[in-house]
């Protein structure tokens, strides 16, 4: 198989944009874990990094909202946000149209998706890249799961999408890494920003590490109404995390960091799957 790395991480814009407002002790331990994930990612020598982010109206709107979309270009631009506000300079990020097209073609055998030859990155991708590939030297394949504008794809479809990506990796000669970004519980960009359900987050990450499909797709815990109540509208982004679980094909995971940093609006999280355990 050619899936060489799988993990998840937070992507909240405050991580870079409001760095000076956080408790430096917690912040720096989080940054260290984030950068370590980058070291491990690059050590896996991927030819391309698939980044599954729940984007935030940078490319897709309710006039034509895909549940699942994959980018197919040689270059992308980001961030769309004010660079000073996000703390990340605007730049070109390399893609690889050929790898994307073959990846998309394989994914389509199992999942109905949209593809996009234009894609502007927002914090959902730019914040992870800032820590994971700070030299921006590995081609990115951007993936979006609609987690913003309901109706949202059922979790079962997100799981199937992850399985389709795993099969696509296996069918390709390239070494592919998959990173999911977002969540977990949060009420971003509202007056409730900073509210975090830590117990809910830890319970979800326990299910994620065990890669327990039934627990991750638990309709009582994770139907949209319950998620909205327990974990805020930001909780819908669990789709990106459990898609990586499906892609990892039963591998067991390790949480390297998961602690609330309220001024960053989330339980800041870094976790990876041990693909050798699959």
């Amino acid at each position: 198989m050619s899936l060489v790395f799988a993990g998840v991480c937070s992507h909240a814009p405050g991580i870079t944009g409001r760095a000076h407002m956080a408790d430096p002790d917690v912040r720096d331990r989080f940054y260290e874990a984030f950068r370590q994930m980058g070291d491990d990612l690059r050590a896996a020598k991927p030819d391309a990094v698939v980044i599954i982010a729940a984007e935030h109206f940078a490319n897709f709107f309710m006039n034509n909202m895909p549940s699942f979309a994959i980018g197919m270009a040689d270059s992308y631009e980001g961030p769309i946000e004010d660079p000073g506000w996000l703390g990340i300079e605007r730049r070109q990020v390399p893609g690889n149209r050929d790898i994307s097209q073959r990846f998309i073609t394989e994914v389509m055998k199992g999942s109905d998706i949209a593809y996009a030859e234009e894609w502007k990155f927002d914090h959902g991708i730019m914040v992870p890249l800032h820590f994971l590939t700070p030299d921006y030297d590995i081609p990115v394949i951007p993936v979006n799961i609609n987690c913003q504008g309901p109706p949202l794809a059922p979790l079962e479809r997100a799981w199937a999408f992850g399985e389709s990506m795993r099969r696509a990796c296996e069918a390709m000669p390239e070494r592919i890494a998959i990173i999911g970004t977002g969540g977990i519980s949060h009420w971003p960009a509202t007056p409730d920003s900073g509210k975090i359900n830590e117990a809910w987050d830890l319970d979800f990450m326990d299910r994620w590490c065990r890669n327990d499909k039934d627990a991750l797709l638990d309709a009582d815990a994770y139907n949209d109404l319950q998620v909205y109540s327990d974990a805020g509208q930001g909780g819908f982004e669990i789709r990106t995390y459990l898609t990586v679980s499906a892609a990892a094909g039963g591998a067991q995971g390790v949480v390297h960091f998961c602690e609330p940093i309220p001024i960053f609006a989330v339980s800041c999280t870094v976790a990876t799957y041990d693909l050798a355990s699959a």
Partner: peptide
Amino acid sequence: VYAMTTGLDDVIAPVHSSS
């Protein structure tokens, strides 16, 4: 979906004292 769930005067995400 972006309703408010906390009280008007709640302090949700205080800025760290050193900053």
